[in-house]
C-alpha cells in the first residue's frame, strides 16, 4: 500500500458516499445515470469474485464488501425507492455498445486465457468506460447539480491517483500491469473535460452548465 493508492481508494470511497448522501438527503436521483451504476455494479461483481477465495487484508476485504454493497444499494435507490425521480429519458446511452466491444477485447487482450483472468480483464476495461452514460446524460441535460459534480470529481480523481500509484509501484517494487495502466489512462482521460469544467466553474461556486 502507498499514499497514492490510499488517497485513490479514499477518493473512490468519498465519491460513493457523496452519491449516497445526495440521493438520501434530496430523496432524488435526478441527474444520476442508472446505467452507469449498473455498469459499476458489473465491474465490482466481476472484479471481486475472489472476495471469498483470496484474502489480501482486512482493509481490502472491507473495501470490496463496501463497494459492492453500496453500488447495489444505489441501484435499488435509482430503480426502486426513488424511481419516480429517475430521468430515464435522458439516461439513454446504449450500454450494449460498451459491453460487447469490452467483452470481446477482454477475450483477445489479457494476461492469461483463464476464466477468472478474462473476467478480471473485462472488469478493468469496463470500468474505464463505465462513466460514459453518466457523462452522456449530463451532456444531454446540459447541466449537473453541484453535488453530482463533486461525485464525478472524486470518482475521476480516484483512477488518476491510481496512475500515480502505478508509477510509484513501478519504481519502488518493479510492479507493472500494462492492462490496468492503459485502461486507467483511458478512464482518466474521459474525465478531463469534466475536470476542466469543475476547476474553472464549480471551484468558483458556479454550476456546471454545458452549452446545450
Amino acid at each position: 500500500m502507498n499514499i497514492f493508492r490510499l488517497c485513490g481508494d479514499m477518493s473512490h470511497l468519498a465519491a460513493i458516499i457523496i452519491l449516497l448522501l445526495k440521493m438520501w438527503k434530496t430523496r432524488s436521483v435526478a441527474g444520476i445515470s442508472g446505467k452507469s451504476q449498473i455498469l459499476f455494479a458489473t465491474v465490482f461483481t466481476a472484479r471481486y469474485l475472489d472476495l471469498f477465495t483470496s484474502f489480501i487484508s482486512i482493509y481490502n476485504t472491507c473495501m470490496k464488501v463496501f463497494f459492492i454493497g453500496t453500488v447495489y444499494f444505489t441501484i435499488y435507490l435509482i430503480y426502486m425507492k426513488f424511481k419516480a425521480t429517475y430521468d430515464s429519458n435522458h439516461d439513454s446511452f446504449r450500454v450494449e455498445f460498451l459491453i460487447v466491444p469490452v467483452g470481446g477485447l477482454a477475450f483477445l487482450v489479457n494476461h492469461e486465457f483463464a476464466p477468472l483472468e478474462i473476467i478480471w480483464t473485462f472488469s478493468i476495461y469496463l470500468e474505464s468506460v463505465a462513466i460514459l452514460p453518466q457523462l452522456f446524460m449530463i451532456s444531454k441535460t446540459g447541466e449537473a447539480e453541484t453535488i453530482t459534480s463533486h461525485y464525478l470529481f472524486a470518482l475521476g480523481s480516484y483512477r488518476a491517483l491510481y496512475l500515480c500509484n502505478w508509477i510509484y509501484r513501478y519504481y519502488a517494487e518493479g510492479f507493472f500491469d500494462l492492462i490496468a495502466v492503459v485502461a486507467g489512462v483511458v478512464q482518466t482521460i474521459l474525465y478531463c473535460d469534466f475536470f476542466y469544467l469543475y476547476i474553472t466553474k464549480v471551484m468558483k461556486g458556479k454550476k456546471i452548465s454545458l452549452p446545450a
Binding site: N60, D177, L178, I179
Partner: peptide
Amino acid sequence: LSVAYKKDEL
C-alpha cells in the same frame, strides 16, 4: 508485459 503478482488492488 506484467510482473506475475497477486491482485492486491481494489
